[in-house]
């Protein structure tokens, strides 16, 4: 687990939740408030360890529920489950391909609100749902899909700029060194 990466992901989640609660522009333009936490979860599941995924699920879920009329804790499980399932299969996913990131972002952004709504409805909550909900769900999915490759690029840039650089490999090999002034014995 890279602590720098974990902190970066949690700070991004903190800012994303604050933005979702205070910026109403997406609601005006798209008819739905977008959610960037599933896209962040995809990044965390593919690039960070399971503790980071768990932290993002718990803290991201709690932060989101704090500003919402949701019962506290309802967003934790859907968010974490998506990250957990992706992290189980992370070795089989071509994480550097933008298309793979796009598909995973779309899937996560579609599954998280659907699971959340399902949990709320099973808990007897009356949600504001109708045909418009389908549009909002599509917007969430599309925005999540587009945002995921951007998040990967942004975090990649941050890691390169602010993190430790990998040690440069040189072409020098001691066993291939030509030692001048020595005569080989077998000649």
């Amino acid at each position: 687990m890279n602590p720098f990466q974990t902190i970066l992901i949690l700070v991004a989640a903190y800012l994303a939740v604050f933005g979702e609660a205070t910026l109403s522009a997406p609601r005006h333009w798209l008819g739905a408030q977008v959610d960037l936490l599933p896209a962040l979860m995809v990044y965390a599941a593919l690039n960070a360890g399971l503790p980071t995924v768990a932290l993002l699920g718990v803290l991201g879920g709690i932060w989101l529920d704090t500003f919402s009329a949701n019962p506290l804790g309802i967003s934790i499980l859907p968010l974490f489950l998506v990250g957990w399932l992706i992290s189980l299969r992370r070795d089989l996913i071509l994480r550097d391909l933008p298309f793979a990131q796009f598909v995973l972002g779309a899937t996560a952004s579609a599954v998280v609100p659907a699971l959340k709504a399902l949990m709320l409805l099973s808990g007897g909550k009356e949600l504001l749902m109708g045909w418009g909900t389908l549009w909002q769900w599509l917007v969430l999915t599309a925005v999540g899909a587009v945002a995921t490759p951007f998040i990967f690029s942004l975090f990649g840039w941050c890691s390169r700029t602010l993190g430790y650089q990998p040690r440069q490999e040189t072409s020098f090999r001691p066993d291939r060194e030509i030692r001048h002034g020595k005569v080989l014995k077998h000649l």
Binding site: V17, E20, A21, T22, S24, R27, A32, Q33, D35, L64, F67, S68, A69, N70, P113, K116, A117, L120, L127, L128, M129, T133, Q136, L140
Partner: peptide, 14 residues
């Protein structure tokens, strides 16, 4: 009004 509900299925503000 300082914030809106981030979820689409509630209509609340703080």
């Amino acid at each position: 009004v300082i914030m809106r509900d981030p979820e689409n299925w509630w209509r609340t503000v703080q």
